[in-house]
């Protein structure tokens, strides 16, 4: 079966002196219905990988080489106006900081309506009705009224739900979620993860989930990619990652998480010379 998304030998560099290779020869696939978790620490290249897939890498970053095959087509060779169709209608995205991603002077409903009208799905009253439906789907209580709220009137958890509603507006087959619960309290995070799982079922989604949190990975991912300094150091089904990690870095990350005998020293990541 052809994968929904296949990233092949992706290399993204930031032009500086010396140049920084943020993503270095990264390859992975996402199949229909699958949740792929990408886990790594800051600077591992996990977010740049996500932005590369939707071709939104900021200057001075640029994709140097590789292929991003989405539904069989290489996104690195399509024109920008085709790419605009892919963003939203093909691939939806949810970012870490909903306040930064939402326009503070636009009402919640207008964000969703914009996505619908840009992609020619609905406009005017129909778009508004659809926006209310979507807000209801992501379990925003009193969607009828909330559709006219501004982002600052919502809690962090509600903003993240709005982000998800926007991402789902055009029913994309793939959603990229970059640290979608990192800014949230743990009880709100739990609700958001449950919602993501439900939406995945309801909208028949595949999910690329980027996180630094192995708890989120354990709960959500079918397969896992572990990144370190721009490279994939390990890639395996979720059970293997936790039960039988192979790479010293993966082992070290897992050993860094408090959870063993209370009060004992945490083992942590061995220095790179050891691997």
């Amino acid at each position: 079966m052809t994968p929904l998304l296949a990233v092949r030998n992706l290399r993204t560099v930031f032009d500086a002196t010396p140049p920084v290779v943020a993503v270095n020869d990264v390859s992975f696939e996402i199949h229909k219905g699958e949740t792929l978790g990408v886990v790594g620490e800051s600077g591992s290249g996990k977010s740049v990988t996500a932005f590369s897939i939707i071709r939104l890498v900021q200057e001075p970053g640029r994709i140097e080489s590789g292929q991003i095959l989405f539904q069989g087509k290489d996104l690195l060779s399509v024109p920008e106006d085709h790419m605009r169709q892919v963003r939203g209608a093909g691939i939806g995205f949810v970012f870490q900081e909903p306040m930064a991603a939402l326009n503070p002077v636009m009402r919640v409903g207008a964000h969703i309506a914009e996505a619908l009208s840009v992609h020619g799905i609905a406009s005017g009253k129909a778009a508004r009705e659809r926006a209310i439906e979507l807000l209801g789907a992501v379990r925003i209580v009193d969607a009828q009224r909330r559709v006219d709220d501004y982002p600052h009137q919502l809690s962090g958890g509600m903003r993240q739900r709005v982000m998800l509603a926007i991402a789902l507006a055009c029913k994309p087959p793939l959603v990229i979620a970059d640290e979608p619960t990192t800014a949230l309290d743990v009880t709100v995070q739990a609700q958001m993860l449950e919602l993501l799982r439900d939406m995945k079922r309801q909208f028949d989604l595949s999910l690329l989930l980027i996180t630094h949190d192995f708890g989120v990975i354990a709960e959500m991912a079918d397969r896992v990619v572990v990144m370190h300094r721009g490279k994939i150091v390990e890639q395996a089904p979720v059970r293997d990652i936790f039960r039988n990690p192979q790479h010293p870095y993966t082992k070290g990350l897992l050993a860094s998480i408090p959870g063993g005998e209370p009060g004992t020293r945490l083992k942590g990541v061995p220095s790179e010379v050891d691997w």
Binding site: V186, Q189, L193, D213, G215, E219, V238, R239, F242, L254
Partner: peptide
């Protein structure tokens, strides 16, 4: 609160 913490175990 305690039940909301994801376990490090799939």
């Amino acid at each position: 609160l305690l039940s909301a913490v994801p376990a490090i175990d799939p």
